[in-house]
């Protein structure tokens, strides 16, 4: 809680540094951020290729290049997500996403109330709150699955005898034709800047209001927890997951 009636030094003293984001999560995060940024930019370029080079066709390969990078980062994006799936299982408590838990939905309501100013206080989290989790689920996992499905289906069309096609070919008739697949791929691409806008706002807002190190946490892994506030929802965490401030 950003309680400004407490002096800066008192504040520091009351805080405990907690190792929240393990290295693999941070690595995942930044690879993901990079891949998405590049996929979105190259993707939008593919949809609206604005550069028109002169000369003979053989001298230029702009569209081909952009499509190639889109393809490369598509596979990085996919691999990264697969890794993250594994880390849900292998990682620490903060790395989990458990929408099915009762607490999740209660927390979701509470967090929603907090963000709509219906309550003053938010539930305490060292990991992310339920609303954030839901957003990650929708924008990263669901939209990602859709992008991957539609993207791989389009890719597979280049080699209809190939392996990709035998796995993802069904998507094309499933969406009543490749054009719809492509249009949807394009439409859902917009979910990423939309997510990023909300994400950055929330991350910086959180950091400013609570001064809990949220922004830097995705770099060094540490967040701050108020000691003895009694509001922590992480009291059940094993000791070794909490590390004290130096």
């Amino acid at each position: 809680m950003n309680d400004s009636s407490v002096s800066r030094s008192e504040h520091q003293a009351l805080r405990k540094q907690v190792y929240v984001w393990q290295f693999p999560v941070r690595l995942f995060h930044w690879i993901n951020a990079l891949a998405i940024t590049i996929l979105f930019l190259t993707g939008i370029y593919i949809g609206n290729p604005i550069l028109t080079p002169r000369g003979e066709a053989y001298q230029n390969f702009i569209m081909g290049q952009i499509r190639a990078w889109h393809g490369i980062f598509a596979f990085i994006f996919i691999a990264n997500l697969l890794f993250r799936l594994y880390w849900f299982w292998a990682g620490n408590e903060y790395s989990k996403l458990r929408l099915w838990r009762k607490e999740f939905w209660g927390d979701l309501v509470a967090t929603f109330k907090y963000y709509t100013f219906m309550t003053r206080e938010h539930t305490l989290h060292l990991g992310h709150n339920a609303l954030a989790q839901l957003m990650y689920f929708l924008f990263i996992w669901l939209a990602g699955a859709l992008m991957i499905l539609t993207g791989l289906a389009m890719r597979s069309g280049e080699d209809p005898g190939g392996v990709l096609y035998s796995i993802f070919g069904w998507v094309i008739p499933g969406f009543r034709g490749e054009y719809q697949v492509r249009n949807l791929h394009h439409l859902f691409a917009w979910s990423y800047p939309l997510f990023l806008l909300g994400h950055l706002y929330m991350v910086f807002r959180q950091d400013i209001l609570d001064d809990d190190g949220t922004v830097s946490s995705m770099i060094n892994g540490y967040k701050f927890e108020l000691v003895g506030s009694g509001e922590s929802d992480n009291s059940s965490l094993p000791e070794d997951m909490l590390s004290t401030a130096k």
Partner: peptide, 27 residues
């Protein structure tokens, strides 16, 4: 897999198009 004879419908028009070089070039 769309129920059409492969001999004629296997590939996209784009993949054999006589303007394809210009597409890749960005022209």
């Amino acid at each position: 897999n769309q129920g059409r004879p492969r001999a004629f419908y296997e590939h996209r028009v784009h993949d054999g198009c006589n303007r394809r070089a210009f597409f890749d070039a960005g022209q």
